[in-house]
């Protein structure tokens, strides 16, 4: 075969039209395989179960849906679940940055142990965490008795829920911020200092803005985890309807009463709310990332 025929043959095989949407010639192999596996797995593990929930919830009239999904008890549970998750994520956002800062910036004895401890909430069975926290913060527990003296009731109140969700969410913030903080070279801070910026200016104008996107990711992850958390919360929450009952627990209660439709209705409401929130946070992130590339 001559070289001319070779080159024309090559031109014939150029991708055309709609094909270019998915297939582009690239040196990185395995696109078809990896996308195929991803889509199948995502369908099996995430999409199909979620659509089953929605399907179950749609087998009722709109007024039934409203009644089950937006009853006073359900509204109270949403308020607590989303509110406590938000507060916990906010607390974690502050203390997670500090923890990440300490882990990245300083050398101190026991650093590797603290580093390991941060991940513990990932690994610990959540029920264990819940029981431990409930014991600690109950009115006669180690911490709870002093809070009691100060007139603060932690266990069996919404505050208890926040405590449990803070425990669960901390590693999300620390582990998302840590690599970004490590990448942020000392050069940049020194440059700011040599330009006359004080300590606070450097933190406020240079470090925190650079951390922004990662911070938001950590916050979102911590928040999302908090909204869905069940195991650690139920032991410390007290679970009083309208007061300290979280939405996931309400779903379980409905299930136990064989009230499947109500359970899936609440699930659908939570799902939509969470999805909308994550979408908004992702959009903010994309915007921030585009600016700092």
């Amino acid at each position: 075969m001559s070289s001319t025929t070779l080159s024309t043959a090559g031109q014939d095989r150029q991708p055309r039209g709609a094909k270019t949407l998915f297939r582009r010639r690239s040196a990185i192999a395995g696109f078809g395989l990896s996308l195929g596996v991803t889509v199948s797995l995502l369908s099996l593990v995430v999409l199909i179960p979620l659509s089953a929930v929605i399907l179950k919830a749609s087998g009722q009239s709109f007024s039934e849906f409203l009644q089950a999904g937006f009853s006073a008890r359900a509204l109270g549970a949403y308020r607590l679940s989303f509110g406590a998750a938000f507060v916990a994520a906010a607390v974690n956002a502050v203390f997670g940055v500090l923890t990440a800062w300490a882990l990245v910036r300083y050398e101190f004895p026991g650093k590797s142990i603290i580093n390991g401890l941060v991940d513990l909430p990932f690994a610990l069975p959540t029920a264990v965490a819940g029981i431990a926290l409930a014991a600690l913060y109950s009115p006669n527990g180690w911490v709870g008795q002093y809070l009691e003296m100060a007139g603060i009731k932690a266990a069996y109140t919404p505050l208890g829920v926040v405590i449990a969700l803070t425990f669960i969410g901390l590693p999300f913030v620390v582990r998302t911020i840590e690599p970004v903080l490590r990448d942020l070279s000392a050069d940049v801070e020194e440059a700011a200092a040599s330009l006359g910026a004080g300590r606070l200016s450097i933190i406020g104008r240079v470090i925190l803005p650079a951390l922004g996107p990662a911070w938001l990711t950590g916050f979102a992850l911590s928040f999302a985890r908090g909204v869905g958390e069940y195991g650690s919360v139920i032991f410390i929450a007290g679970n009083m309807p309208f007061k300290s009952e979280i939405a996931p627990l309400l779903i379980v209660i409905q299930l136990e009463q064989f009230n499947y439709q109500a359970a899936s209705t609440i699930a659908v409401v939570m799902l939509s709310a969470s999805f909308a929130m994550l979408l908004v946070i992702n959009a903010i992130q994309a915007w921030a990332r585009k600016r700092s590339a």
Binding site: E190, P209, A210
Partner: peptide, 13 residues
């Protein structure tokens, strides 16, 4: 003093 670093050290954001 004005200081210029080898790796530029610009504020990326």
């Amino acid at each position: 003093v004005g200081f210029v670093f080898q790796q530029y050290a610009l504020f990326r954001h």
